[in-house]
Nucleic acid binder design. Structure first.
Lengths: 207, 207, 207, 207
DNA sequence: TATGAATGAGCATTCATTCAT
DNA sequence: TATGAATGAATGCTCATTCAT
């Protein structure tokens, strides 16, 4: 009953705990199910306590997204470093992307499946937006691939978005769809990247 | 003023009226704006009456979605009947699917993006499940296409799922993401289907 | 526990009960202490129930005032009928006014002691405002009295307001001040009206 | 940053600082806007600290009022000292009283209009009670005036209370009633005091 | 068949206050 | 002396739902 007995942690720890719990709530329930009260009771504190760490619901939500974005961005940056050829880099990147999503489903859901447009609570620094980041990354790789002849000449913007949309669909499905008899995840990822790469690839002549 | 005067219809009629009104609310407003009370007042009946026809809110929502997705299924069936080639049929089907999702974003959300895994009680009739339907449809078309040589030999299950995942990703993005400077929807759909079709297509010989 | 067992009353009855309870709450506590929840629990109903009878807090508050105003106005109308001379009428009116206030302290407090200006919830039809009513009544009586020579020539507006203010002060004190050793109420009313009448009266005789 | 660095003052000093800040908040904002937290942050101390100097919110409010009303008492004492005649002194005192009320509406409300009867625990020190003070003051002046022949023979207690009631009514009205087209405040005060003084005055001359 | 009456749980947020340190 | 951490209770209001009729 005594709070200091229950939680002998530093201020930053509790802040983190709140953020994590909030993201989990988001990801496991739907957006509408999130509430300050449920969050509070989930971490075993009173609702009031949350307001000691975040100014209000909107602030908390923003922090959750920011944190999540940062982590996702970090992963995306690393993709770029490991490139051999543009097409190989895309292939590797798509796989890494899905694997991140599957490994961090709650992060992914918060960022991409949360009805952000309708909720003005979610308005973040656009330079942080992972949607934009991966889009520009893909766009650059496509451009390189077209230049090198690996990739057939395609409209950059729409194609980059299409690729992203496709891989996002796979990520979403692997995260949300637990009942439908999905193929082994790995095999599905393989098939999907093959399909996309093949769709991009220049028709190889005499072959 | 007398309800029996107002509505001298059979049981099935009122049920339909409720469903139609609910679909309207769903189609016009946002998902969050839907409420049993508003629905009731919209059709001029008491809130209680709705519970005579549907066990609860979720049940009603499911019926609404089922009804609406039946339209999609119907459209897809027709495509199948009128298709010239498997590949063309797939192309037309993908477009129809995305257009359906964009036209009925609330339905699409309820079926694919809202707490599916958590509430197994509230699953749609599996034979009606739009995910399953399009999967089996795709699978058949792929099989046909491979047989006819239009499509390169691919593993049927994983490929059908990949295609679906891709198009689902596009649908999701078009529904949720309103801020990112998306290409014109049409053009994006075009690009996406091209990409996928191209990925499926047999490498064309001597070309 | 069963609502229909607890309260077998008609719809209008409960409405009245709510109004009465609300006025009592207002009058006994301060304005800030009023709450929909407290009101609800006071009458033994859930908070939600109140919203079946009034659209919201503001509506309820307005009805309380309206009702109270009406009763006070009714009393004031009657004063006018019983006049002999303007000065006598004023005297009788002042007494009637205080007596109404003392007899209906809660009504009086709601109307005059409730911080209305700061609360936009209290904005009523001005023709109903008893402050205006008694003011115009007084003004007319003063005018008559000055014409007849009973009352010394005084500025009508300011004097009417002064009289009202004075008697309002007495009413307020008799209602609120229960500890201070107040003279017998009757005697105080007598003194007060004497004082005011004397202040109004023309300096008599040869002067 | 270190509190002891910030405020190296004695206990009495901080107490004063709190009172001053509270009086400021009270004087500038509305009564409803006052809160312990806001007060604390205004003076740069934690909310907890206030409770080292005042038992609770009501205690603090009482002290603020007491302090402020002491000003009124002081003003009234001075009038008494410099008065030319009892009647003049009463006139000046009435004006001073109303002007004080209008200048400190929140204080006046707390002392005279807020749940006095219900909370006997929270009464002001009776020897400080402004109601009592002005009553006894008035009583003495009346007595003097009657002795000197300026004021007609009147029952002291009831008359003192009547005068007070009248002026209290004006004060209350000026504080609460902001909508009704009140005469210019000054003029109304003038009229009111005239009326009362006239009511007190001995019937003059040959009569 | 349909309803009117009613409810409990829920929402974000603010408040005065307490307690161990 | 002063604080940081925490809380319980409260606010107006809406929701899905129930129940007796």
């Amino acid at each position: 009953m005594n709070p200091s007995d229950r939680h002998e942690r530093g201020r930053e720890d509790l802040r983190k705990e709140i953020l994590n719990a909030a993201r989990d709530m988001f990801a496991t329930g739907s957006f509408e199910e999130f509430s300050m009260r449920k969050l509070a009771s989930k971490i075993g504190y009173s609702a009031t306590t949350i307001y000691l760490y975040f100014t209000d619901r909107r602030d908390l939500l923003n922090r959750v997204c920011q944190e999540t974005f940062a982590e996702l961005n970090h992963t995306l940056e690393q993709l770029l470093a490991t490139a051999s050829s543009p097409l190989n880099c895309i292939r590797a990147g798509l796989r890494a992307y899905v694997e991140f999503a599957v490994a961090h489903p709650n992060h992914y859901k918060v960022v991409f499946l949360l009805d952000r447009p309708n909720n003005p609570d979610y308005r973040l620094d656009p330079t942080q937006d992972p949607g934009s980041r991966i889009y520009f990354l893909l766009r650059r790789l496509l451009s390189d691939g077209i230049d090198s002849g690996e990739i057939r000449p395609l409209e950059l913007d729409a194609t980059a978005q299409s690729i992203w949309a496709s891989i996002h669909g796979l990520a979403t499905l692997l995260i949300l769809e637990t009942e439908f008899p999905l193929e082994q995840r790995d095999r599905l990822i393989e098939t999907q990247t093959d399909l996309l790469i093949n769709g991009l690839a220049a028709q190889n002549a005499s072959k």
